[in-house]
Amino acid sequence: MADTTIPEPIPINLVVNGERRALEIVPWTTLLDALRDRLELTGTKKGCDHGQCGACTVLVDGRRVNSCLTLAVMKDGAEITTIEGLARDGTLHPLQQAFIDHDAFQCGYCTPGQICSAAGLLAEGRARDADEIRELMSGNLCRCGAYPNIVAAIEQAMSRS
């Protein structure tokens, strides 16, 4: 006879896009599902749910991570930045504008993850040329094949920051 009970929720606090959010969360809930289903921040995308595509990339305490492989309970107290938190007072983040300028997406589904990942990349300061951007953005799949435009958009944002 299998165990059919479900785990008890645990109270946690997250600071999401600068706003403190209190949640009662079952430990098996990923940060991705907490953002999408509980906080209705559906800008963060689920593309594989296994850390294979990068669509779920968000910044946790300033670092880019796959939110699908992150348990929300383990991030109690963390600061989370999602795609919804990048624009300031209606002004797009330079990466968001650069993605539009360079047509760095088609269907748009990987785009929030690409942009959050690129924001992490800029903060890390490790990419100095196009090849390094390509390598360090390889954790974000784009099935529409916008890669050259994504690289161009990141180069634009990099040169202006």
């Binding site: 990068g54 492989l69 990942s117 890390e124 954790g139 974000n140």
Partner: peptide
Amino acid sequence: ASAQLRNM
């Protein structure tokens, strides 16, 4: 892996 996974 990827930059994200290495961060985690």
